[in-house]
Computed example of a mutant assay.
Amino acid sequence: MNRLVITLLLALAPMLIQSQNFEKYEDMKEVDAMVMTSKMFKMLAKVDLSDNDPEAREYMKLIENLDRIQIFKSSDSKVRSLMASDVKSYLQKGSLEELMRVNDNGQNIKFYSLPGKNDNYVKELFMYLEGNEDNKPMTVILSITGEIDLSQLSKLTSDLKVPGAEELKKANNKS
């Protein structure tokens, strides 16, 4: 009986792990990927900035509290289908709350978050975008984890040139 349970758990483990993260897309040639880790953010936070620039100080405060940013983008139909399936599985775990949905010019963008220490912070911001770029179908997955100050987040996503950043900025301005 124990062998059966262990075998079953070992067989299910890869599926459970895949539904929890999207790192498998990093090595796919059909995917544009960017992953930044907490080490990178800590390095950036050590950059010596002028005390006269409060915007730069706020920006550094935001990034030093981040753990990871993952962005995966693909136009390949098979990969896009796999991404849709993985996102659906990830969202069905039920830990993320829907923030907003935007359907604009053929782009469907959905934002989700994991609540943080108060209403101004989240532990994870997750975005899923299905749309077109240069008349080609495109899917984008964005996951940002850490102590995320929502008031500063739109600046970061704009600087990273993330599709959907404008919609996030509009949502922050409404709150």
Rank of each mutant, 00 (worst) to 15 (best):
F111W: 08
E124C: 07
P137Q: 13
S113H: 11
S50K: 13
G131D: 07
M43Q: 05
K123Q: 11
L44N: 06
G116Y: 04
G164H: 01
Y59M: 05
I71N: 00
T157N: 03
K136V: 09
R68D: 00
Y128N: 07
K93I: 10
D149P: 06
T145G: 04
E98N: 09
V162M: 03
I71M: 02
L66C: 06
L66I: 02
A45T: 06
S50F: 12
L99Y: 12
M138H: 13
S75L: 08
E64D: 12
M83E: 01
K110D: 12
L91G: 08
G131C: 09
T139A: 12
T145M: 06
S81Y: 09
D86N: 05
A165I: 01
E58I: 12
S81T: 09
L49P: 13
T139I: 07
S74E: 09
L44Q: 08
Y90V: 02
D76Y: 04
S158G: 06
S77M: 15
Y121K: 12
D67Y: 06
V87I: 03
A33I: 08
S77F: 13
Q70K: 00
D53W: 14
F41A: 12
L153G: 01
L82E: 15
E167V: 01
I144C: 02
E30G: 11
D86L: 04
Q107D: 15
L99T: 13
V35F: 00
K170Q: 09
V31M: 04
Y128I: 06
G146L: 01
L49F: 14
V31N: 01
P163V: 01
R57T: 12
K117L: 11
N132M: 15
R57V: 13
A56P: 03
T37P: 05
N52L: 15
E55N: 13
L150Y: 00
I141E: 03
K117Q: 12
D48C: 10
M127V: 02
D53K: 14
E97M: 08
E147R: 09
E58M: 14
Y90I: 06
M127I: 03
R80E: 10
N52S: 15
G146K: 00
D67F: 05
S154D: 09
S151Q: 14
N172A: 15
G131N: 08
D134T: 11
I141D: 03
D119C: 11
E55P: 08
K161N: 04
F126C: 00
V102C: 10
E133R: 12
K42H: 10
P163Q: 02
Y121N: 14
R101P: 06
E98Y: 08
K88N: 04
D51R: 15
E130R: 13
L66N: 05
E147K: 07
I109W: 04
N52P: 13
G146H: 03
L44H: 01
P163C: 02
K46I: 10
E166Q: 06
L168A: 01
V162E: 01
L44G: 07
E130N: 14
N135A: 10
E97F: 08
T145F: 00
E133V: 11
S89A: 06
N120I: 05
L168I: 02
S77Q: 15
E167G: 07
T145S: 03
E133A: 12
V35Q: 03
